[in-house]
């Protein structure tokens, strides 16, 4: 819930206060925060006792437990969104890029 409140605050700042020309800085900040989070996750895993042993012994089973549910989620969401939702204009993003 805290996360949602912080995001709402960000939305208000973005809507009323944040200058358009600083948009790139904000994107950079997002990326930096993500990288710090991923780094921290790696550090946490590196410190976890027996992590690599677990990865070797249960890796294949875990991989299938990741792969099959993820692929099926993608398939189901693709079918449902294609059928029931309007498609966002992907050209807009391509033009921006």
């Amino acid at each position: 819930m805290d996360i949602l409140l912080v995001m709402c605050l960000g939305i208000l700042v973005g809507r009323f206060l944040f200058p358009q020309k600083a948009k790139r800085w904000n994107e950079g900040a997002s990326l930096l925060c993500t990288l710090v989070l991923i780094f921290s996750m790696g550090a946490m895993l590196g410190r976890k006792e027996g992590f690599f042993h677990q990865l070797l012994t249960l890796g294949a089973q875990s991989f299938l437990f990741f792969l099959i549910p993820t692929v099926l989620s993608i398939v189901v969401v693709y079918i449902l969104t294609k059928r029931f939702m309007k498609h966002p204009n992907q050209d807009e993003k391509e033009e921006e890029a």
């Binding site: 912080v6 995001m7 960000g10 939305i11 973005g14 997002s30």
Partner: peptide, 12 residues
């Protein structure tokens, strides 16, 4: 911080 930054992107 990340959520605040994402909120700014959304708000813009």
């Amino acid at each position: 911080l990340l959520m605040f930054s994402v909120g700014i992107s959304v708000g813009m």
